[in-house]
């Protein structure tokens, strides 16, 4: 079996080791005999929703984000939208998460249009929300690191999880991220999947099911992942 990961603009959106998620997916798939092809999507290239099994949309600095927004609108907005609507597996992190929404309102009141694929919106704050954080995803403690100035409001949409420690979407309503069909949005930047193998496997599983029908994944030896989780949950919880 083979899966194709489309990594959106890795040259521009590479702030905090987001590429780690590609490495983790590849590593976990390879141990089960599943090969992963990574397509580095760059400015000006076309997006084929049929040929893509996982989209990774990371975060970047303001200038790079504006280049990305412009390019998506010009070249791939419609196919990306239908990919997400059709249940394509997507992992959107920090800036990528914000950009999928309606807009971003700066502290000065300027409104920057998002892609509008999902209805959430973000307000820029003065103080950055930074630190290790933990949220509950269907009973599983997800451990991550957040670093964002934006406060995101998701309205009636389903959050990815409930905050147990840290800030999450906005530091007010206890929600973290957004879960829409097979799109997973989170503020947990960087190698989010490295310490949350359950979610990594869920992404692989959903992607395999979509392409090949029902499958089951053999368990892996996650000694280091489990030790990391134990150590950090003890420290931070």
């Amino acid at each position: 079996m083979e899966l194709t990961i489309c990594h959106l603009y890795p040259e521009l959106l590479n702030m905090y080791g987001d590429i780690g998620n590609v490495y983790i997916l590849k590593h976990r798939a390879a141990q089960r005999g599943i090969s992963i092809k990574v397509v580095n999507h760059t400015v000006g290239s076309a997006f084929s929703s049929q040929d893509t099994d996982v989209v990774l949309f990371g975060g970047g600095q303001d200038f790079e984000m504006s280049v990305v927004a412009e390019d998506i609108k010009n070249n791939m907005l419609a196919p990306l939208k239908s990919y997400i609507e059709d249940g394509g597996v997507t992992l959107a992190i920090c800036g990528g998460y914000q950009m999928l929404g309606k807009n971003y309102i700066t502290p000065e009141g300027n409104v920057i249009d998002g892609l509008g694929i999902l209805p959430h919106y973000t307000e820029g704050g003065e103080k950055r929300l930074i630190g290790n954080f933990i949220f509950d995803y269907n009973g599983y403690d997800v451990i991550g690191f957040e670093n964002h100035a934006g406060r995101t409001y998701i309205g009636d949409l389903k959050p990815l999880g409930k905050i147990k420690k840290g800030y999450g979407n906005n530091g007010e309503d206890g929600t973290e991220g957004l879960h829409y069909k097979n799109t997973y949005c989170t503020y947990s930047h960087g190698p989010f999947l490295s310490k949350n193998p359950l979610i990594a496997d869920e992404l692989i599983m959903k992607a395999l099911e979509k392409r090949y029908g029902k499958v089951s994944l053999s368990p892996l030896d996650d000694e280091y992942e489990q030790s990391a989780r134990r150590q950090l949950l003890k420290r931070f919880a």
């Binding site: 080791g17 590429i19 780690g20 630190g131 690191f145 670093n147 190698p191």
Partner: peptide
């Protein structure tokens, strides 16, 4: 640096 994500870069 309290964030160790950089090791993936």
């Amino acid at each position: 640096g309290t964030d160790v994500s950089w090791i993936y870069d």
